[in-house]
Design a protein around this nucleic acid. Structure first.
Length: 217
DNA sequence: ATTGAGATTATT
DNA sequence: ATAATCTCAATC
């Protein structure tokens, strides 16, 4: 019985609707960001299965996007994973405190990524609350990129570069989201990107209360 | 070697 | 408004 949890997690992962590499390795990162809405982001960290539906994303279009860590082909120890072939995680530390989870897309050498900005909790809510040191479930648990990583136990040292086809962090097909439910707007916190700050690269589910309350720009 | 700003959040 | 505090690029 003691191994039951792990058995089921691994079994369900095998039988699940886990997204294939072909989903990630497409060239249109903006389209992928939109399509990730309604998908289920799952983590199996420290023996705890936690998940939520993706309700907010942002596309970062690599070398041509002033807001991207890969702008102009910039390549450093921190952003190295951006240059991997699509289907791995790019997790970096923001403001020295927050672990921001990105989905790397496109082929190797092209630093495209989608930042996951908010999820609606599904499984393992007790584990998420414990990780956040919270007693009560409220929107602050997973509405915001730093908050969701904390809830899912995602850490930049342990999870930067992990394969999204593996059994640590992955994304499953879940809801079918019609275009009429998707809002496109400007990205958050990218004023430094000048004209690229006005690109409509942020997507969220209309009227979903788990979308982050961050102000645009 | 030092400094300032950043894909943020909780608190004052 | 501000603190918390890691990484990177620019400047000294």
């Amino acid at each position: 019985m003691r191994n039951c949890g792990q058995f089921w997690v691994l079994t369900m992962a095998k039988l699940s609707r886990k997204l294939p590499l072909s989903f990630y390795r497409r060239p249109d990162v903006v389209q992928i960001a939109k399509e990730l809405l309604g998908k289920k982001l799952v983590s199996f960290v420290d023996g705890q299965l936690t998940s939520g539906l993706i309700v907010e994303t942002e596309a970062y279009a690599g070398s041509t996007d002033r807001a991207s860590h890969g702008y102009g082909g910039r390549r450093t120890a921190r952003n190295e994973m951006l240059y991997q072939a699509g289907g791995v995680a790019y997790v970096y530390l923001c403001y020295g405190i927050h672990h921001l989870f990105n989905v790397v897309t496109n082929e190797a050498g092209i630093p495209h990524a989608v930042l996951i900005r908010a999820i609606q909790p599904e499984e393992g809510i007790e584990y998420m609350l414990r990780r956040a040191g919270k007693q009560q479930l409220d929107y602050s648990l997973t509405a915001g990129p730093g908050a969701l990583s904390r809830a899912l136990g995602i850490h930049y040292r342990q999870h930067n570069g992990v394969k999204l086809t593996g059994n640590l962090i992955w994304i499953e097909d879940a809801l079918s989201v019609p275009d009429t439910e998707v809002v496109a707007t400007t990205r958050v916190g990218v004023a430094y990107a000048q004209e690229d700050a006005w690109l409509p690269y942020r997507f969220y589910l209309r009227d979903n209360p788990w979308v982050s309350k961050a102000k645009g720009l």
